[in-house]
Design a protein around this nucleic acid. Structure first.
Lengths: 200, 200
DNA sequence: GTTAGCATGTAAGGAGTTACATGATTTT
DNA sequence: AAAATCATGTAACTCCTTACATGCTAAC
């Protein structure tokens, strides 16, 4: 039971839709979560092994050891090196692990965790979605308050670059909050809470 | 010669202004770079030791070993444990290290590095500032293009959450670019390049 | 026939975190 | 006198990256 494991959550989530091999997985990661999310081979492949070892994934197509017809030299059967497309499929264990990780609300407040979970929101129950959105909102609001305190403390003795930085960061945070608000509104509209008599 | 060492750069930069002890340093870090930048003790204190060891910092006020008047029990001189406010000062070596790290353009393209360097922009030469700004701009533009490619590739089969995420991220990136543009404009206005005849 | 992209992995290490451990000083 | 906050540090660990190492396959 890992606390973090963002990569593992992402991998499991992608494999829920269809089987894929490592190389493909990496590209999909970039397309789904945006171009800032780039994983290296050095972390992806070990993650796949780990997940396979604990039974969350299984190899669907063993890379058939093939005879290397290396332009008629020595025809050697490269059993260990005969690797080509190790395709992975998620298991029942994996599905459960995915759900557990997705539902764990404790760590999901920072930008990266939140972004990742949002990408798999459709797998979450409506109430869990709202919880997450509200936690994220509260976190951002807290940071916003800290920005304001900072600016007062810094007062005059602050150079133009730092000031510009603070202002830009604050504005970004404010827009993030507005965006979360939109998501919350939309969420409530689609899944009204029991007892919510807004459209009576 | 570390490639990264963001923390060390930040510490040196703050100590350029005035001497500080660890605890104070941590708070200043938060106020200067925004509330998202929180370092833990477990990384700050080791960093201070490292910097001291290589001669970039020096302890300005040894924590005087004092007699612990522990309510008249055994009056023991706690020499090793008698620690209270280890104040650090930057040395000439440290100043040079700071400049070297700040001027190193290679790694400063991601958000965190860029933010950090911007906070110390006044210590950079105008040309170096422009170089950094333009590198960051190019990086963001590249990411923006990737966003657009992604959206085309994903096409229809994308859920509303992921779509919202992509759109928000793209909009953020676009605003970041605009902000950089403003910084560039302001920079050129304040320090016109030789041969720039804009205000002839 | 050689470059570019596909495909998989390992070893070493960097940068930081959490949890632990201790004690002083100030505020309530 | 208790609680909060100031203050410093260590050990173990996590997650990820870079650099290395290998080889296939398609395109030009």
């Amino acid at each position: 039971m890992k606390q973090h494991g963002m990569l593992e959550l992402a991998v499991l989530g992608l494999l829920k839709e269809r089987t894929m091999h490592g190389y493909e997985l990496r590209k999909q990661l970039g397309t789904m979560l945006g171009p800032f999310w780039q994983v290296s081979w050095g972390s992806l492949y070990p993650a796949l092994r780990r997940l396979t070892k604990i039974g969350a994934l299984e190899k669907v197509a063993e890379p058939k050891p093939r005879k290397t017809r290396t332009t008629s030299k020595t025809v050697k059967t490269t059993a260990t090196t005969g690797r080509r497309k190790t395709v992975y499929r998620i298991t029942t264990v994996g599905e459960e692990l995915f759900s557990a990780m997705l539902e764990e609300t404790s760590t999901s407040v920072d930008a990266e965790h939140f972004t990742l979970k949002l990408a798999f929101f459709r797998y979450l129950a409506p109430e869990a979605r709202l919880t997450l959105l509200e936690r994220r909102r509260a976190y951002l609001q807290e940071k916003l308050a800290q920005f304001k305190t900072n600016l007062k403390e810094l007062g005059e003795r602050i150079d133009s670059y730092t000031l510009s930085l603070q202002n830009h960061s604050m504005a970004s945070t404010e827009r993030d909050i507005k965006w979360i608000d939109e998501l919350i509104t939309e969420e409530r509209r689609a899944n009204p809470a029991p007892g919510d008599l807004r459209n009576a």
